[in-house]
Simulated assay, not measured.
Amino acid sequence: MITTNGRIYQTSDLSGRGRKEFIEAAQRGPTTLRTPEGESLVMLPAADLEHLAGMRDHALNFLMLDNAMSRPREQRRAADFGGWAFVASLDEGQLTEFHSEVNDALIRAGSGQAISLVDDLLDEWRATASLMADPVSRGILEESMDIEEWTEVGPDDWATAQGA
């Protein structure tokens, strides 16, 4: 429930000086306007609404992540992670670390810090997940590939391979 500044404005308050007072109150935080039909409308700064919408979206994705992680790995599909389907390429340890870091970021963002805190963290994990989704990159990162089998290619080798 949104906490407003205490006063409930009526539509009749929007004429004359009351309009200015209503707008000033809304600039400070959520402000309630009651319509003649009895419906309550809330006006608030757009940045506050964007923050709330971002928190809602991230909270829903976090709940989907939590739900997916409650099942064994072989029963999970990428779609089970909702908007965070990219995490399907992470191993269990990374997935647990992701869960913990996002939980912390959501708590901080919900406590008044910018939602960009969560967005930036997700961007970092998307990059990690992208690397982990590629078998060669994953093998290099996990040191499970034998790099002794690799051959270093110089500029002349590349030109020859390209048919130049």
Rank of each mutant, 00 (worst) to 15 (best):
Arg76Phe: 04
Asp48Met: 05
Glu24Thr: 10
Glu101Pro: 05
Leu49Ala: 14
Pro30Trp: 01
Phe22Trp: 03
Leu60Tyr: 01
Asp157Tyr: 07
Asp134Glu: 12
Ala109Arg: 06
Ser40Lys: 01
Arg71His: 10
Glu143Thr: 15
Trp84Asp: 13
Glu92Asn: 06
Arg73Glu: 14
Ala109Ile: 08
Asp66Lys: 12
Leu122Ile: 15
Trp84Ile: 12
Asp80Gln: 05
Arg73Thr: 14
Leu65Trp: 00
Thr4Gln: 04
Gly29Ser: 03
Ile140Met: 13
Met64Phe: 08
Tyr9Val: 13
Ser111Ala: 12
Ser144Cys: 02
Thr32Glu: 02
Glu142Asp: 13
Leu52Thr: 09
Ala68His: 04
Pro135Gly: 09
Glu92Arg: 06
Thr4Ser: 00
Arg56Cys: 00
Gly16Arg: 04
Leu60His: 06
Pro155His: 07
Gly54Pro: 02
Arg77Lys: 11
Gln94Pro: 03
Leu121Glu: 13
Gly16Glu: 08
Leu122Cys: 08
Leu106Ser: 06
Gly163Thr: 11
Val136Glu: 11
Ser130Cys: 02
Arg126His: 11
Asp66Pro: 01
Asp157Ala: 10
Thr128Asn: 07
Thr96Gln: 10
Gly18Thr: 15
Lys20Ser: 14
Ser111Asp: 14
Leu14Asp: 10
Glu124Val: 13
Thr3Glu: 03
Asp66Ile: 00
Leu52Ile: 11
Ala47Asn: 04
Thr32His: 00
Ile107Val: 15
Gln94Ser: 10
Phe81Pro: 11
Leu141Asn: 14
Val118Lys: 08
Ala161Asn: 06
Ala59Gln: 08
His99Gln: 11
Asp157Asn: 13
Asp120Val: 12
Val118Gly: 09
Asp156Thr: 07
Met64Ile: 08
Met145Asn: 04
Ala79Gly: 06
Gln94Glu: 13
Arg56Ile: 09
Thr3Asp: 03
Ala161Ile: 02
Ser144Tyr: 02
Arg17Asn: 12
Ala164Gly: 07
